[in-house]
Design a protein around this nucleic acid. Structure first.
Lengths: 308, 308
DNA sequence: TAGCTACCTTTGTCCAGGACAATCATGACT
DNA sequence: AGTCATGATTGTCCTGGACAAAGGTAGCTA
């Protein structure tokens, strides 16, 4: 049994793209794409090309395009479409940092990568590191992966090394159990990406905020209990781009009803860009920089109230 | 519109319990549970009780029970079942460290917990900390959680804090890019638990080993590429107790075939206790202490060969 | 005793195709 | 400009059938 990568079954594609099985079948029925091969057992076998195109479509939908309009374009056309979106960025001089990073990743030089990140933290300070280095680097790595320029394991290595650098830097700050506000960080079930939590923590810790992270995938009911048990002032939830919008909004609505009104709820991460309307009682954090604004806003409104 | 908690639709239950929609419908057809009410539109509306019981079933399945055997028990009986499993330990005198830890967790005192762990690392050194403190504490927390004495979020907090302590301690060691052997750490897809990787890394780093971790869930083909790209001497894979034995063995066999023979493969974690026979070309690491033995063994056999 | 094989049972995922509600887009009307 | 009705688009849920993968057992053999 030498070669494992002949095709993806529908479950694998669901995991890879974040598009539900039902939806994949529906698109096939309605639009004729994707039209995967079938294995001897009649089950769909998606090719790598199909999965790549699905990812590209997913990405464009995340920024507001409708599937019916783009599903029949070729992968190249879709990439071109995505490019026009970020044309501004493209025209800039290829930033040396990004190139450097990609080179290190492709050479699998973990040590040098680690050193580069540590150096950046030192030079820029933690907050600036997050806002000005990690954010664009994430984007670079994400784009490169989308285009198939990076292997999965190379992207894993990057994520891991960024986490190491962030944890180290966060630990360098003194613990502040008396910090205000008290922020509880976690994600909903089925959200595996914890990097966002760490990024937010890295932004807050220098502001003398008391952060408690539960890691990823806490059930809603347990989030409620945790927020109360930890006397959280703010509950910060992170959602990756692939997170189903509907699930997120339902869960947020439910949480808002379950928690006392003095607990502020923040919802951040890639997914929040897809949210059109405002969600009552929820503060949306569409990008990392907004985290600090939201914190300032909380302090302006809440602290005087409590102190009075 | 505050929150109507009358029922969960099937998508919500999938999120809450991690059981797929297909599976929920299949259980209803086959076992008659859960049998949710229907809304005016004919769609399933699961009650909170049903969701709670589903969660309990899921927990027991995670430790190896089969759904058919337990699905008709009441919620109380299920909790009792979880109890019997750790009855032996119940009788033992609870060591003070364990009691202390559980108290801190139930008081949600993240700061004190953090301090306790940091103190233990200092006092015992990293390796001893892992072997003599973390291992029994993990067990304590796991048992308490199974018994329902700990909330999910309390268990999450513990895991998170241990990770913080371990990362900090690992970072205190100098990077050793020239360390030998070179160890690559990761897990198979569908294995979300990464704590085991960190524990192994914590044991190896003091031995001047060069560790590169890819985090969790790397596809087999990418593990192969990563091992080659990183020139790994040892590939260390971690499996939690719930990991399907068959998948693990197949994956390991395949990897063994894909990798050159001079790459040693270690398989560790709870799952390995269930492995009866030996797997050709794979070194089983049934407990953490064996990691160090395996390392010594590697050094005894391999280094002379390479040096010769 | 330990390992293997064959066979039966249990369990989870996939399939087809129908239905329908929520969302989006458009255009007419105030 | 804003608001409302209308029609098209889009995603989720439904039923009930099929089947393969994993677990478990018993008998055979070294």
């Amino acid at each position: 049994m030498p070669t494992p990568p002949p095709g993806f079954n529908i479950g694998a594609v669901e995991r890879e793209t974040g598009l539900s099985k039902d939806l994949l079948r529906m698109w096939e029925r309605r639009y004729g794409f994707p039209r995967p091969a079938r294995d001897p057992n009649g089950e769909r076998q998606y090719s790598l090309d199909e999965v790549s195109k699905l990812r590209a479509i997913r990405r464009l939908m995340d920024i507001g395009m409708r599937p019916g309009k783009i599903i029949h374009q070729t992968l190249d056309e879709l990439n071109a479409l995505a490019d026009t979106r970020s044309a501004v960025r493209k025209d800039e001089i290829a930033p040396p940092l990004e190139r450097n990073l990609l080179d290190l990743l492709k050479n699998h030089d973990a040590a040098a990568l680690q050193q580069l990140l540590a150096q950046l933290v030192m030079r820029q300070g933690l907050q600036q590191f997050v806002l000005e280095s990690v954010t664009p680097l994430n984007r670079t790595v994400g784009d490169a992966w989308m285009r198939g320029e990076l292997e999965v394991f190379e992207e894993h290595l990057y994520t891991e090394q960024v986490q190491v650098a962030l944890r180290a830097a966060i630990n360098a700050f003194p613990r502040t159990p008396s910090g205000v506000p008290r922020v509880l960080l976690t994600t909903f079930p089925n959200e595996q990406h914890g990097l966002g939590l760490l990024l937010v923590e890295a932004l807050l810790v220098p502001e003398v905020v008391h952060c408690v992270s539960l890691g990823t995938q806490t059930p809603v009911e347990d989030i409620r209990r945790a927020a109360i048990a930890h006397k959280a002032d703010i509950l910060a939830l992170s959602f990756s781009g692939a997170f189903p919008l509907r699930s997120a909004i339902d869960g947020l609505d439910m949480l808002r009803g379950l928690l006392p009104p003095h607990v502020t709820i923040w919802a951040g991460g890639e997914m929040t860009r897809r949210v059109r309307r405002t969600i009552p009682g929820i503060v949306l954090i569409p990008d990392l920089a907004s985290t600090i604004q939201a914190l300032r806003s909380w302090r302006a409104h809440r602290v005087p109230l409590n102190a009075a």
